[in-house]
């Protein structure tokens, strides 16, 4: 089954900048896909479109986005069912987007808002089954000990894992992660990526993760989609990314953080093997 189907979606921002330029792609259920590209290449914009948080250009050729076969937006109009569809789509943000003053437990419980009757959710009347489910999710991502702390007191990596726990409680079948490790230290980044890989492997949740660091993409995602100036310039196995291609993709910017940043490291062979060797 197709998890995500994007057909010819464009998006221009005020000032005429083209953030997405006739983007089309298809992602099958159960895949773990990396979305790579320089800052401003349109990765975030694409993910936000898939979640139905932003509407595409109306334009002459109307773009369409379907999630699990249901239309979330078409011709710039966000579907009336978008709330129900969003419950299937977990979103993990670069800045975690937890409510800092609420407890970690409450933040994770809020994942069930799209699944329970609106009045009960609004009044915050969560049932025991839901609370158990939230606790189980916190155990899975390894932060159950902090359940009753305010979310703002956790480290970045812990907050990000809480955000992933929220998508588990949400019972999302697709998780879109927008630069989930960009503001984390390497150890936390690895933990977060491991957590995403685990839910992909064990629960069959489709994961699309935008990454700045190519090495992480290579390590965790069999498939990579590369974007440049709002266009998809590569879509295929991540092992097929050549150093020359990546150098071009990032312009003068160095592709990947860790391998290239190590001055004592031997010259990069095919980026895939070099990065993997460095990381293992």
């Amino acid at each position: 089954m197709t998890a995500v189907q994007v057909t010819s979606v464009s998006k221009s921002f005020r000032g005429g900048r083209r953030a997405l330029d006739r983007v089309s792609l298809s992602i099958a259920q159960g895949e773990m896909v990396a979305l790579i590209g320089a800052s401003g290449s349109g990765k975030s914009t694409l993910l936000r479109h898939i979640a139905g948080l932003v509407g595409a250009d109306r334009g002459e050729e109307p773009g369409r986005i379907e999630v699990f076969g249901a239309e979330i937006q078409s011709g710039g109009r966000i579907s009336g069912h978008c709330r129900r569809l969003r419950a299937d789509v977990g979103f993990v943000f670069q800045q975690f987007n937890l409510v800092g003053r609420l407890s970690v437990m409450t933040n994770v419980l809020l994942g069930s808002l799209g699944r329970i009757p609106a009045w009960r959710g609004t009044l915050g009347l969560f049932q025991n089954a839901e609370k158990h489910h939230a606790m189980e999710a916190l155990h899975r991502v390894g932060i159950a000990d902090f359940a009753l702390q305010k979310a703002s007191t956790l480290s970045g990596g812990q907050q990000q894992r809480a955000a992933i726990a929220r998508t588990l409680v949400q019972k999302a079948r697709l998780v879109l992660a927008d630069e989930p490790i960009a503001s984390l230290d390497p150890a936390s980044a690895t933990k977060v990526m491991e957590t995403l890989a685990t839910v992909n492997r064990e629960d069959g949740i489709t994961v699309v993760v935008s990454l700045h660091q190519v090495d992480y993409a290579l390590r965790y995602c069999p498939r990579a989609i590369a974007m440049q100036a709002g266009r998809i310039v590569y879509d295929g196995p991540s092992t097929g990314l050549t150093p020359a291609f990546l150098a071009d993709l990032y312009g003068s910017e160095r592709p990947g953080s860790a391998p290239a940043a190590d001055p004592g490291h031997p010259p990069l062979g095919p980026v895939g093997s070099a990065a993997l060797a460095y990381l293992s």
């Binding site: 979640a51 969003r86 419950a87 979103f91 943000f93 800045q95 800092g100 809020l110 799209g114 949400q170």
Partner: peptide, 12 residues
């Protein structure tokens, strides 16, 4: 951002 985080769960 936290508001958007909540919106993404399918909240009203």
């Amino acid at each position: 951002r936290p508001v958007e985080g909540i919106r993404a769960t399918g909240a009203t």
